[in-house]
Design a protein around this nucleic acid. Structure first.
Lengths: 243, 243
DNA sequence: CGGACTATTGAGACTCCTCAACTAACGTGG
DNA sequence: CCACGTTAGTTGAGGAGTCTCAATAGTCCG
């Protein structure tokens, strides 16, 4: 049996699910489920579920934007290939993440499945019509867009670091949050070293060397290439926070 | 008389104004004014105009978020001070830009005026109430949020470059777009070298050296510290595009 | 005319990138 | 089931670029 991405609370839930930190709410600083059950059902009736094998390109940069997508399960990468031949991964998308926000009717980034993926596809015109009738639903998408913006700014800060080790640590921490793995359990790393490099603004080799350094220092342990365990939590946090 | 920021089409216009590339529209790829006259008037009746001298802190990171702001005139910087003592400027804000999008009821970045600034202040609760009644208005804010996200991703790409010269060129290009200066005219640089460094992920010295290099190569000419003229457009564009 | 801040220039250390060779893992087809 | 080819990952050596520290010049304000 192939890898199955952990899906904490979508099991049995009908319809798409969005995760974000709303900008109003004050209590509880963590991300929450944005949609009400009624909203999920409403969206579900306008959405189609699609499944992609690993490595499938879901859409390419520049293609006409006809749909928004919400990740149900699996991991997706969003990237652009630059004229220099370099590739910049803008973000990794996990369950309850949104992608497909376009500019002037065209997609900006190319989206590709890293693992087998299940997504909810929402027709963009149907959705905007829904917005006109349901301002509360629209507000959830606004919250999500703002949340995504925060993550992009955080990504900026990560890439701004000069030390490779710290950047790798920040990625591992990000993966840990997503995996919802218990402390001490290995954190899954779904993407390749090359993807990590393209996300962190490092060469593939720099990622490997920084990873090896973290391991030799006793901060983490790579169970295999796709699983890392955090050994020394204090030094790990110090490293990841020491921006 | 003090510097007066150029304000292309806000003169005589009542109410706040937002600029973005909507994600639906296909024709005309440039940014457009989002609000209708009616929407501007509606917002104006709920907004208060505030004026800040240069260097004023408009709000600090972590403060309770009570309002959204739209820049009327002047330039603002949005930044965070990191534990290491470094400062990362997330973005510069120009007329028709939006700021104050919070997370869990608190501002994320510190906002500070670079030049004298005039802003429209919108009470966050009043605005969300407006959204409930006016989905079209809310949609404009959604468009703007998505547009800001694109800019953050573009910023990511800039910072990801390895060569200082290219990064500086990209900043100058960004300033040129904002200034709406005629080709061949000097482009105003409202912020300090230090701000530029914090935005580009370079040390102050690296900014100076890269600038000097661009000048010695005959690509640009610094009229004074706050004005640069693009001499060799072709090489300039090649540099700025060669990500 | 000070005084404080901003900008510029120089020298050395450090880190990552590039190139290159090599090993490991994976998947396919015989 | 194994051999092979392809992709992903690892390690080493050398070079390019920025960072830091330090000292100096320039600019803006009161």
């Amino acid at each position: 049996m192939k890898r199955v991405t952990v899906d904490t609370s979508m099991a049995g839930v009908a319809g798409p699910s969005l995760l974000a930190v709303p900008f109003l709410q004050r209590a509880g600083s963590g991300p929450v489920q944005l949609f009400s059950d009624a909203q999920r059902q409403l969206l579900a009736s306008h959405a189609s579920v699609r499944v992609f094998p690993a490595r499938t390109v879901i859409y390419r940069a520049g293609a006409p934007a006809e749909a928004l997508f919400i990740v149900g399960s699996g991991v997706v990468k969003s990237f652009r290939d630059l004229p220099s031949g370099r590739r910049r991964i803008a973000t990794f998308l996990f369950p309850r993440d949104l992608f497909g926000l376009a500019e002037a009717g065209r997609y900006v980034n190319t989206l590709q499945a890293i693992t087998p993926v299940r997504v909810h596809q929402l027709d963009i015109h149907a959705l905007t019509e829904l917005f006109e009738r349901d301002a509360a639903l629209e507000f959830q998408f606004l919250c999500k867009a703002v949340h995504v913006l925060r993550e992009a700014q955080h990504h900026n800060i990560i890439v701004g670091r000069r030390d490779a080790g710290g950047r790798v640590a920040m990625l591992i921490r990000l993966l840990e949050k997503q995996s919802a793995a218990a402390r001490g359990e290995p954190v899954p790393i779904p993407m390749s070293r090359s993807d990590i490099g393209n996300y962190l603004g490092l060469s593939l080799e720099a990622v490997v060397r920084a990873s090896g350094r973290l391991e030799r220092q006793g901060i983490v342990e790579f169970v295999d290439r796709h699983h890392v365990r955090i050994i020394d939590r204090r030094r790990f946090d110090a490293l990841a926070s020491n921006v």
